[in-house]
């Protein structure tokens, strides 16, 4: 029976990168292109006046409000590590090298734990907690991303007031994803936050063994905090910036 299924699937899905028949959970590395759109980020804040948003969009809209960067996700069947890449997108390459942001997201799906090392408002935190369900809503759409057929899901971030839409690969059975997103039946290959305020798109996927990349130092530098504690640091900052009528993402990662 099995060969028959194979032939059948082959007929319809001949060039799909990963035949679903052969699902040894893969490991590898993904490079994401992150597109930041400052005008759309500002437009997504509900406490900034319409006049100011429109004025900003008029002066900074168009191709100038966008900039791109790279991030990297390493994944194995049981673990994942995500960080900001040093590599620069060609168009952005103007030669100046800023200090690399501390943003390393570590997930252990086997143990159900996370150890995220994040710079927040001038302080390095180590968020240590169990992985919690992120409340993904599964949609019916299918789309191809980087050669993989993906399914659509979304969730709402009630603190940052974001609608995060993702596309996860049906043929890569791994719950990892970029940024702090995870917990879907397939690897997340594309992300859209608030309709273009930030987008991430997998542009290079390598399936290979990761002999060294996943090693975690026993002790991570930073102040230990729980997920709830981390969320309240962010909530407090956003509340304060809201009172000051300033975008909260000037001091904080948008996503």
């Amino acid at each position: 029976m099995k060969p028959l299924v194979f032939v059948f699937a082959f007929l319809f899905a001949e060039t799909c990168a990963q035949a679903q028949e052969n699902l040894t959970p893969p490991e590898g590395k993904i490079r994401y292109v992150v597109t930041h759109n400052w005008t759309k980020q500002l437009a997504s804040l509900d406490y900034i006046s319409k006049q100011r948003k429109e004025r900003n969009a008029y002066m900074w809209g168009g191709s100038r409000s966008e900039w791109k960067s790279y991030t990297t996700l390493f994944f194995t069947p049981s673990e994942s590590k995500y960080e900001v890449s040093e590599e620069k997108v060609e168009d952005e390459e103007m030669g100046y090298a800023g200090r690399k942001e501390m943003y390393t997201i570590r997930r252990n799906f086997a143990a159900g734990t996370m150890r995220d090392q994040i710079d927040v408002l001038g302080q390095t935190y180590v968020v240590e907690d169990s992985i919690r369900p992120q409340g993904w809503k599964i949609m019916n759409d299918l789309k191809e991303v980087a050669g993989h057929l993906c399914m659509n899901a979304y969730r709402e971030d009630t603190i940052k007031k974001q609608r995060i839409t993702v596309w996860f690969a049906l043929d890569i059975p791994n719950s990892a994803g970029p940024e702090r997103l995870c917990g879907l039946p397939g690897l997340i290959l594309e992300v859209d936050v608030n309709e273009g305020a930030v987008t991430l798109m997998a542009d290079k996927i390598e399936f290979r063994d990761l002999p060294t990349e996943m090693t975690t130092p026993k002790k991570l530098k930073g102040k230990k905090i729980t997920e709830t504690g981390y969320q309240s640091v962010i909530r407090d900052h956003i509340t304060e910036k809201q009172k000051n009528e300033e975008p909260w993402f000037w001091g904080l990662r948008y996503l």
């Binding site: 679903q20 699902l23 993904w136 599964i138």
Partner: peptide
Amino acid sequence: KDTLGNELAYATVMLLNPKDTTLENFTR
């Protein structure tokens, strides 16, 4: 299985909340 009766190996199977399609559980 598919409509011809062939088994679908390693298909993604999800349990969603019927009200808002929130993902509750999944398996292969």
